[in-house]
């Protein structure tokens, strides 16, 4: 199947599940950070465990990639500023009650404030492109 169509399908599945499990719910995200409700810690935790088991199965299989290519796992290296960036991201996560994936599910759910989070994210990414121009180490 065409890669773009495939990703549209996986995206629909991802957005549907995020919404069904409450990951796009402002109160659940805030609740996780203030220690009121650990539903999303459970979701992320189980996802990591299932993902880790799945990757081990994949690595041990005869044909880890359907096309027969060698499996290329992308590792995100940390730059000198990465942890600062992660802290900024966290602050934004706690303010907006959304992350780059869940804000999209919120858009689909029709939450009007999420449009502002969404455009803020686009603007923040643009700002990064501007900063990167002058500071390549970012």
């Amino acid at each position: 199947m065409n890669k773009n169509v495939g990703f549209l399908g996986f995206g629909i599945l991802f957005g549907f599940v995020l919404s069904r499990v409450g990951a796009s719910d402002f109160d659940l995200i805030m609740g996780m950070f203030i220690g009121e409700d650990y539903t999303l810690v459970g979701v992320i935790g189980i996802a990591i465990i299932v993902g880790a088991i799945g990757m081990q199965v994949l690595k041990r299989s005869q044909r880890p990639v359907r096309s027969g290519e060698t499996l290329k796992i992308s590792e995100k290296k940390l730059g000198p500023w990465s942890l600062l960036g992660a802290g900024l991201f966290g602050i934004g996560w706690g303010l907006s009650g959304a992350c780059p994936g869940t804000v999209l599910a919120q858009l689909g759910e029709g939450k009007i404030y999420s449009f502002f989070t969404f455009f803020g994210m686009i603007f923040g990414t643009y700002l990064y492109a501007r900063l990167k121009e002058k500071h390549p180490s970012l």
Binding site: I44, K76, K77, L78, G79, W81, S82, L83, L84, G85, A86, G87, L88, F89, G90, I91, G92, W93, L95, S96, G97, A98, C99, P100, G101, T102, V103, Y113, S114, F116, T117, F118, F119, G120, M121, I122, F123, G124, T125, Y126, L127, Y128, K132, L138
Partner: peptide, 21 residues
Amino acid sequence: YFFAGGLLLGLGARIAGGCTS
């Protein structure tokens, strides 16, 4: 408020090299 939160998410994710997913 939400625009500012989004800005930090967008900028922070790029500097960090990724997000929650």
